[in-house]
Design a protein around this nucleic acid. Structure first.
Lengths: 156, 156
DNA sequence: CATCATGTAATAGTATAAGTTACATGAGTA
DNA sequence: TACTCATGTAACTTATACTATTACATGATG
């Protein structure tokens, strides 16, 4: 649909980290996202600066979560990424003299800000622990499905 | 803030058209937007196809509104533009096997769709007539201000 | 001290919107 | 009919933001 996969990427990474006890390297993360390790380090930099993760150099180095999953919301992560634009449309000019443009801008801005506020509010309500629980539920579903298939010898 | 000013541009154009009885040329519209006439014709094409405006060639040609301002909503215009993306973030991959990515995607998608729905709903509630009324209110304000300034000889 | 991993700057690739040029088509006018 | 104006569009260039890669410095481990 749209661009900017950083939020999605970081979440993917953090949840995978939650399943590892040892530090995870940027290289490993990059592989699971089909991208480059520098991209990973770049989007992780903000999280490191805010203390959500730690990074260690050298042998056995890599990234480690430094907070519990329940203490980090998607909003925290969004902010750590530098609050990139959430809405795709905007205005052509900033402070126009034209009254028509002023009316258009103020109406569009209102909707834009409402949508932005909604997204940030939702982000603030979702913790990494919630995502983790969703993954666990998915695993349970898969196991259940596998058992059914084994019992009935069907793959349809 | 962000890119894609097409919605803002079209609204600007349509409202200016509402103040003219004669057809308005792409050239004139482009001037008031500080852009090129081809850009104008490009974004107007969808509106023409949906019957919101008519375009006439030759001498005295140009663009004319073919509906009342109260019969066109911002949603109509958004759809006529081809429903461009409203939200800037998205996912890296579409149908991942990874359960983690599935959980991330479904949570992000939910918020994304909620925001998209909100924006489209708001767009559906705003008619061009509403924007026109806002412009009129702005003009009234300006007149009022001008009178005050003339009376008191102040420009602060 | 060799190796591994992060940190980061610099550069290139990609996608989409915006801007421009060029030319065809149709409508009015002398 | 010939001329001019304005739209209709394709093709190309520019601008911008994210993504990807290369290169090299820094620090930690064995």
């Amino acid at each position: 649909m749209s661009r900017d996969s950083r939020l999605s990427d970081v979440l993917h990474i953090l949840l995978h980290m939650a399943y590892e006890r040892a530090p995870v390297t940027s290289e490993a993360m990059a592989r699971s996202l089909n991208t480059n390790s520098v991209v990973v380090r770049r989007i992780m930099a903000g999280l490191r600066d805010r203390g959500y993760v730690r990074s260690e150099k050298g042998h056995g180095g890599g990234w480690v979560l430094s907070r519990d999953l329940s203490e980090i919301t998607l909003l925290d992560i969004y902010l750590a990424l530098g609050s990139p634009a959430l809405v795709s449309f905007g205005r052509r000019s900033e402070a126009p003299d034209c009254l028509v443009e002023q009316a258009v801008n103020s109406n569009l801005d209102k909707t834009l800000q409402e949508a932005q506020l909604l997204m940030m509010t939702r982000f603030g309500e979702i913790t990494l622990a919630k995502l983790h629980a969703d993954v666990q539920a998915g695993i349970a579903d898969r196991r259940h499905l596998a058992k059914l298939e084994a019992a009935h010898g069907s793959t349809s």
